[in-house]
């Protein structure tokens, strides 16, 4: 079902649903992300935000609905579910940044960044290292390239994680509460990297509690509650005039 708009839509989700046993974790999820846009997903804990994010790159397999990356359907091929190996080709086109950084402790910072480009994409080492160093410089950690992750602060680890996610030249970046594990003073250094990426035109889907970032950098805000999308709006509309009661209650709790 390709349409002329598909090329402008980086990610599209149609009627997505996910169940764990008898618990419906996601239901009726419908939204799309235009290429170059930054979309923030907000909502209370347990609303299914992280599960939704993981359905986009099929770390979690949805039970219902369809996921499209640049017009191509992910997860199902010729009527059958894709295998892990087939999914790999799509996953490498999406970068993911995790709440707990998930850096690989047995590799140095630079080795973490060049790992996927070299071993998943098969790029020659010289290319991967060159790009890796440039990315580390971009996130402000050029001098840390040869240290092991355990010596870094949380904010530094997350910036390395962002560099790592960028190393495969992804079409889309997925962020799963990237600053929730960080001390308040350090959150800023990560958010400024994210804002810069957004301004440069990277397509980003960000699950976050950082309302300031959503207000400043997002092109659209999606508010979720109990597994469903409750409201979709621009940041201005959402933060000043939320149209649903749930959104109003949520903002009251979170805004100072």
């Amino acid at each position: 079902m390709a349409s002329a708009d598909d090329a402008r839509l980086a990610v599209e989700l149609r009627k997505l649903g996910k169940r764990y046993g008898s618990l419906q974790v996601l239901a009726d999820i419908d939204f799309s992300v235009a290429t170059g846009a930054t979309v923030c997903i907000l909502g209370p804990s347990g609303s299914g935000k992280s599960t939704l994010l993981r359905c986009i790159n099929f770390l979690v397999r949805p039970d219902e609905g369809e996921v499209y990356l640049h017009g191509k359907r992910i997860g199902v091929k010729n009527g059958a579910s894709m295998t892990e190996r087939e999914l790999c080709r799509y996953r490498v086109r999406m970068g993911m940044v995790f709440q707990h950084f998930n850096l690989w402790p047995h590799l140095t910072v630079l080795e973490n960044v060049i790992e996927a480009p070299m071993h998943v994409l098969g790029r020659p080492r010289a290319d991967a290292v060159g790009q890796g160093k440039a990315l580390l410089a971009k996130v402000g950690l050029a001098e840390k390239q040869d240290v092991y992750p355990h010596t870094l602060s949380g904010g530094q680890k997350q910036r390395v994680a962002i560099a790592r996610a960028l190393a495969t030249n992804p079409d889309v970046l997925l962020f799963d509460e990237p600053t929730s594990s960080l001390d308040p003073e350090i959150i800023g250094e990560v958010l400024s990297v994210m804002e810069e990426l957004s301004a440069e035109g990277m397509t980003m889907i960000v699950v976050t509690h950082e309302m300031g970032f959503a207000r400043e950098a997002a092109d659209a805000v999606i508010f979720m509650d109990a597994g469903r999308i409750v409201e979709k709006a621009t940041p201005e509309a959402f933060f000043t005039r939320p149209s649903t009661k749930r959104a109003q209650q949520f903002l009251q709790r979170y805004m100072r």
Binding site: L59, R91, M96, F98, H100, N102, P105, A116, H119, V120
Partner: peptide
Amino acid sequence: RDQLEAARAYGMSPGLAFRRV
């Protein structure tokens, strides 16, 4: 599991993830 999740997210096949991570 976190590290495995990252490996999968970056497109590593199960075999590759096992060998490298």
